[in-house]
Design a protein around this nucleic acid. Structure first.
Lengths: 169, 169
DNA sequence: GCCCTATATCTCAGTGATGAGATTCTTACC
DNA sequence: GGTAAGAATCTCATCACTGAGATATAGGGC
């Protein structure tokens, strides 16, 4: 998803650039470019991992397990931002492909670990560097300094927005 | 959504912070916060329009028509970034809900216009201001100056990434 | 005019999820 | 030690699209 916003006030005669509306216009413009930037990068990333028959989300799970070792399904779920049904579905598929297996959790019998199989290890070890290079290339429109700046801004933005949606619950 | 990247090198002993890897690390971090920021804002926006039984994408179409007047399906498609099948599906649904109608294009008999019905006009006129305020609020983690800065950076980033994926074709 | 390529839209089977509810287990607190 | 509230996972119906191919029309070169 991607939810592409469209807002663009391009009508002939704007009904007088209302006073407090500068703020809205600035915000709407940011929302548009945020969505487009995300979409463009995401498309690059997905095209990349698709070569190994993985979705971006599946790749995210393998990557998380690669960097963090075995994780509880719930941990992964929170990390990659999918629903409870989603994590079951995704892990099922990675199991079917032979890259991951489920393991009992000794301390909590409701929970299960996802663990990379040797085949999953081998795969992610092989493709992670390629993938990282692809992302670096995708973002190379910005210098490193600009990337750091963008990261700081987006982190601040994301945290505030996440807080807002937490309030909704 | 949404493709949440996860990269986070948190293993005990990092295998020596390799030389050219600073760039990759910077890029990966940006990709993570970009995806998360997008996701948080998108969730706010979608929760908002869901109150009117619209998806974010459907809203995008209504909004585009509201600001630009009648548009060819193909124009809308490029603007909101969906596939050809998607635009047919989405316009079908908006037609079923009574917000939009299709109209012949005199100059090109393959093409059709999407046009807001009075009911669609009334709806979007009513909810657009609420929606814009919601976005403003969602992004209010950044000051206006920061928002402008972020917009400039993301625009640059998005254009470069889009060019890259265009090359892939 | 005729052909060939390109473009606009539509059809439809398939996909990658979501989300509500069911199940199983845990943890306080009485 | 029983019980109620909460948490971790799973099930399954449903959804919002995608993408490949079909159909109809356009338009340029000959």
């Amino acid at each position: 998803m991607k939810t592409a916003p469209t807002t663009s006030r391009t009508r002939k005669s704007a009904p007088a650039p209302a006073p407090g509306d500068r703020k809205q216009e600035t915000a709407l413009k940011l929302w548009v470019v945020l969505a487009r930037a995300f979409d463009s990068v995401a498309k690059n990333v997905e095209a990349d991992v698709a070569e190994y028959d993985l979705t971006g989300t599946e790749f995210g799970i393998l990557e998380a397990l690669y960097h963090k070792g075995p994780m509880l399904l719930g941990e992964i779920q929170r990390k990659i931002l999918v629903t409870s049904g989603g994590i079951t579905y995704l892990v099922d598929r990675l199991v079917a492909k032979g890259f991951v297996k489920r393991e009992q959790c000794a301390e909590d019998r409701r929970a299960r670990y996802a663990v990379l199989t040797p085949s999953g290890q081998a795969l992610i070890r092989k493709i992670f560097p390629v993938h990282a290079a692809r992302i670096e290339q995708s973002l190379s429109g910005l210098t490193m300094a600009e990337q750091r700046e963008a990261t700081a801004l987006l982190r601040k933005l994301g945290l505030a927005a996440a807080e807002l949606s937490a309030e909704r619950e």
